[in-house]
Nucleic acid binder design. Structure first.
Length: 558
RNA sequence: UGGCCCAUGGUGUAACUGGCAACACGUCUGUUUUUGGUACAGAAGAGUCUAGGUUCGAGCCCUAGUGGGCCAACCA
């Protein structure tokens, strides 16, 4: 009866308080502002879920805004990939915006700031400017160009814009306070000249605005009410407010920036720069390598949008540092796939099983359920014959009573088929088992209702009929790094912690119903885990990625 | 020789100032099961970084300390 109301995170609390005091419900508007210089990762997913989630919760618009102010690193390819990822997660933006859409407005405002004495052109190189900036504990000193006349500033700024000055010769700086305890307030650079082609504005601009000068202004232009970013931008807030104040008038709707802690996932890195290194050094195959924590990597690995949204929701949002255990992400995907993934049988490490008392050449098509968690999923037929593949680790010549699988003289059930009893083994010259011989109880057929079929046996094995089996490439993944937090070691580079065994490619056998499985289709290989058809898969050459193994209490016991 | 942010079980989050701190993951036990999966039932595990203070009463407020993070890119 009493509905447990979910407690609000600190972001939601801020909004609730604003709603009570300064904001109307219709004022609410959010944005997700990626820079198109790389692919989105699980950390971005969290931010996407936060912003778009807020949009859903308050029925407020959320803009997708590309922070494309650095033509050196940004490309259309990334814009497209980012849009695909956001859409795939299931969110719709109100407007697709670009900081570059505002270049003219920004320029006009900058001119006004020059006229008002709030900005000036500095003609020193970056080293000199850095030198004068001081340190966190030492105040900066004024640039010799700080008091340049308005006319000269205007003239130089225009030349910069047109590319009539050389690339590092001048910058436009805001005139604030060289002694501020906030380094960002020590006359921050607003524009640099860059004679580069921009992926959207082409060669129209030879100057490009810096982040601080573009971001808050973009928020202001779009009437964003709350601009959420990660904690490292906290010191930028003072500057954000200063800039917005310069471009706004009394009574204008003012956006507010608030900061939350970036979400870190254990055993991986969540930094575009580092992910880029993994790609460039060939440690992974691409941005969408299934081991990557990128959204495209997770998608290829077999993660669903639901699972990622659930994950983001579960980890919440706060201000303290964190390393979220990868097992939580795994829990989220298992939970989703358990409900939705059809069950099939596939043998990863095959060994041949011969049923000696089964008629040679005979085949039976046995009925089996597609998903015990979903009655509507129905049933299908799978072929059974004298020779089968079973998992090598499912047999032991002699076993203790904790081993619930096949051993000599013991009975187990073949899933949806018969009860068999281990009789003997055939080995090669190395002592390696090449065949297991067993007998079956013809009356024990699954679902027959016979007394024999109801017999309790301690184990059930999955299997694939040899003559019907389809060979498939199977890619097994492990964590990309051997340590929980590879990028927090002060001495060692994160690359030293790369797990050399993060990918294992094997050939296994799957049941024939999988013959036409399409890219991205997801299955549970019974007892083995969840698998997803890789994009490199094709009709005659099936490739499966293991998304995640099933929970395995036996593995732990061993 | 600074400024700012943070500090709750192993992990991630909760707790309207007031009944020996709750939820999820993980861990461990059982039950069910033709997946050693799922489901179900249950358990262990923190007394909220430390020291003071305010208060009848503090995880929540104040002060100091300690620990961690951020800040000196013509990156975002």
């Amino acid at each position: 009866m009493i509905e447990e109301k979910k407690s609000l995170n600190f972001i939601e609390q801020i909004i609730e308080e604003d709603l009570k005091s300064t904001h109307k419900k219709d004022d609410l508007k959010f944005r997700f502002p990626p820079e198109p210089n790389g692919y989105l990762h699980i950390g971005h997913a969290s931010s996407i879920c936060l912003n778009f989630g807020l949009g859903e919760r308050y029925n407020a618009p959320v803009n997708l805004r590309f922070d494309d102010t650095n033509p050196i690193k940004e490309e259309q390819e990334f814009v497209d990939a980012i849009k695909e990822d956001v859409l795939w997660l299931g969110f719709k933006w109100a407007k697709e915006c670009y900081a570059s859409d505002y270049f003219q407005q920004l320029y006009d405002w900058a001119v006004k700031m020059i006229k008002d004495g709030d900005a000036y052109v500095d003609s020193q190189d970056s080293a000199a400017i850095a030198e004068q900036k001081g340190t966190p504990i030492k105040p900066g000193v004024a640039s010799p160009y700080r008091e340049r006349s308005v006319e000269e500033n205007l003239e130089l700024f225009e030349k910069m814009k047109n590319g009539e000055t050389s690339e590092g010769a001048h910058v436009l700086r805001a005139k604030i306070d060289m002694a501020s305890s906030n380094m960002l307030m020590r006359d921050p650079i607003m524009y640099r000249s860059l004679h580069k082609k921009h992926h959207r504005t082409g060669n129209n601009w030879m100057i490009y605005p810096m982040y601080d000068w573009a971001h808050g202004e973009s928020d202001f232009i779009e009437s964003i009410s709350h601009s959420f970013c990660t904690l490292e931008f906290l010191p930028h807030r003072e500057l954000y407010n200063w800039f917005v104040k310069k471009v706004s008038k009394e009574g204008d709707f003012i956006p507010k920036q608030r900061e939350f802690a970036r979400r870190n996932l254990s055993h991986t890195v969540v930094s575009k720069r580092k992910l880029l290194q993994l790609v460039e050094k060939g440690i992974v195959s691409a941005w969408d390598d299934p081991r990557m924590p990128t959204i495209s990597g997770l998608r290829r690995r077999g993660y669903t949008p639901m699972s990622i949204r659930k994950f983001a929701d579960t980890i919440g949002i706060a201000k303290r540092e964190n390393i979220i255990d990868a097992s939580l992400l795994e829990f989220c995907i298992r939970e989703d796939l358990n409900k939705t993934a059809p069950r099939v049988m596939g043998v990863l490490d095959p060994v041949k099983l011969v049923i000696t008392n089964y008629e040679e050449g005979k085949e039976e098509w046995l009925e089996t359920e597609n998903n015990p968690e979903d009655e509507k999923a129905g049933t299908r037929k799978i072929p059974f014959s004298k020779e089968l593949y079973i998992e090598r680790e499912d047999f032991k010549e002699e076993a203790n009573r904790k081993f619930f699988r096949l051993s000599l003289g013991k009975e187990v059930r073949l899933k949806s088929a018969y009860i068999i009893k281990g009789e003997s083994v055939v080995k090669d010259e190395n002592g390696e088992i090449t065949e297991i011989h067993c007998t079956y109880d013809p009356k024990s057929k699954s679902g027959s209702g016979s007394e024999e079929s109801l017999r309790k046996v301690k184990g059930t094995l999955h299997w694939v009929s040899v003559p019907h089996a389809i060979e498939a490439e199977i890619r097994l993944y492990d964590r990309l790094f051997n340590v929980e937090s590879p990028d927090s070691d002060k001495e060692k580079d994160f690359l030293e912690f790369v797990n050399p065994d993060s990918l294992k490619v094997i050939n296994g056998f799957v049941e024939p119903s999988l013959e036409g499985a399409g890219v991205a289709e997801k299955f549970q290989f019974q007892r083995m885990g969840y698998f997803c058809v890789d994009k490199e898969s094709s009709k005659g050459n099936l490739v499966f990625n293991r998304t995640v193994a099933l929970r395995d209490s036996w593995a732990k016991q061993k």
